[in-house]
Design a protein around this nucleic acid. Structure first.
Lengths: 245, 245
DNA sequence: GTTCGTAACGAACGGCGTTCGTAGCGAACG
DNA sequence: CGTTCGCTACGAACGCCGTTCGTTACGAAC
């Protein structure tokens, strides 16, 4: 009762009971923050995941979030790991056991990882700045290492291959998100071709002979086909490039 | 004379001559914006490249920049292309001519591209959102296509390979920048190992057998060695994976 | 009954990208 | 020569942002 700050509510009088007064409210938690952030991410993209919007979705103030999360980057890292959890992982063979199905399993694992990460608008870019160490990131790494072990690849090569595959997943997903974001609801095809023509129209065949001659080939193939080819290249390359070879 | 707004300068009277009154001033230009932005980028990183700071470096106001650039993203795209210009490109063989040195040339081209992009703190992430179409980006693409042509690779495969190589360059550079940024002046080695141990300390060998058994191998090798191996994998994989095979 | 740690919160700080209305100024035009 | 016009430049402002601070409420411990 002392202090008597009165009613310092200059903006929104229609809410009669202060949020603080209300009792239950489902209790905040880091998981709840992540869920709210993920919903905003899917709805409006990475830039829309602001502390204020997350707080608003949870019917609280931005300052309250800092009890569960040190800052926005940490929240995004948690969201990233949550998304990684959506990737179905194959059962891992025991250490030392050969696993003949490793190639198809690894191929689909990489492809689904790219698709899952790419479908949550822009979250993949989070991983390019922080080496992720969340539980689901570790589980994914474990699965990849297990499949590579099933191929009989030595430890050093597997270690390098893990990095390379992770890099590829992240980059391919980030690119996919970017394409999806650009299109929004416009035609991906049309705008992409338009941009291409715009850029190519000014090219002289003398200065850029290969680009000009390949103009049509460069836009060929769907994203999925390009993704699939990329994975094949990676796997073939890994098999054919032992470390310290 | 009409209107007579008087002297609406409530904040900084110590500057007697309005910037407007001063005559010469070297004249703004898109190039000047890019140079100023690049200097800030190298000094303080991508986040520090704000419209206000660029304007300040040019001794003007942020609003003035919009005459030469539509928005910050466009400015960053110009900076990105400027940085690409720092990459020395090999002479391109004529279309149809075999070029036996293609492999070493392409390998060093990719490696230097990663190094150059990675050395300008965070600029590589710009390319993950915009397919770059600046002149230097086109020249780089032309060079890569030319070297691949020297290897006798067909058009469709070259097209896919170009995308894959560009993706790898961008991602590897972004990761390199991120590592450099994390370290700042702290020991990269120490902090990386500490983070690893932090994450690995909680791992049970039952749940993560491969990760645990490879704990030491995973941190082996310098960044350069990993980069070099990655390029070999890409090139070997491209050679061994014709499109529509 | 009192103390105390801590979740929750409103307000504020400093900064951001961008827009708006206007001021200056050289060239074009009558 | 006088006027108009287009364009660069600019200060101020808008609506955001992440984060911090000081205070309040409240449950558990004593």
């Amino acid at each position: 009762m002392a202090k008597s700050p009165g009613e310092p509510r200059p903006s929104t009088p229609p809410a009669p009971v202060s949020r603080r007064t209300r009792p239950a409210k489902a209790a905040l938690s880091a998981d709840a923050l992540v869920s709210a952030a993920l919903a905003i991410l899917d709805a409006d993209g990475l830039d829309a995941v602001t502390m204020r919007r997350v707080a608003q979705a949870l019917d609280t103030g931005a300052a309250s979030l800092y009890v569960y999360v040190a800052n926005r980057d940490e929240l995004l890292a948690l969201v990233y790991d949550r998304v990684l959890g959506e990737i179905p992982l194959p059962a891992v063979a025991a250490v030392g056991e050969p696993f003949p199905r490793w190639r198809t399993e690894l191929s689909t694992l990489v492809r689904t990882a790219i698709t899952v990460l790419g479908s949550h608008r822009g979250i993949a870019t989070v991983a390019l700045g922080d080496v992720p160490t969340g539980p689901n990131a570790l589980a994914l790494a474990e699965a990849i290492l297990g499949l590579l072990a099933g191929a009989g690849i030595d430890d050093l090569t597997r270690s390098l291959a893990l990095d390379l595959i992770n890099l590829h997943i992240t980059a391919a997903a980030a690119e996919e998100s970017a394409y999806a974001a650009k299109g929004a609801e416009g035609h991906t095809e049309e705008s992409a071709v338009a941009a291409m023509d715009e850029a190519f129209g000014r090219l002289s065949a003398a200065d850029y002979p290969h680009l000009v001659s390949m103009r049509e080939t460069l836009t060929a193939g769907s994203g999925d086909e390009r993704d699939a080819w990329g994975i094949e290249v990676l796997l073939n390359g890994i098999l054919g490039t032992p470390a310290r070879g």
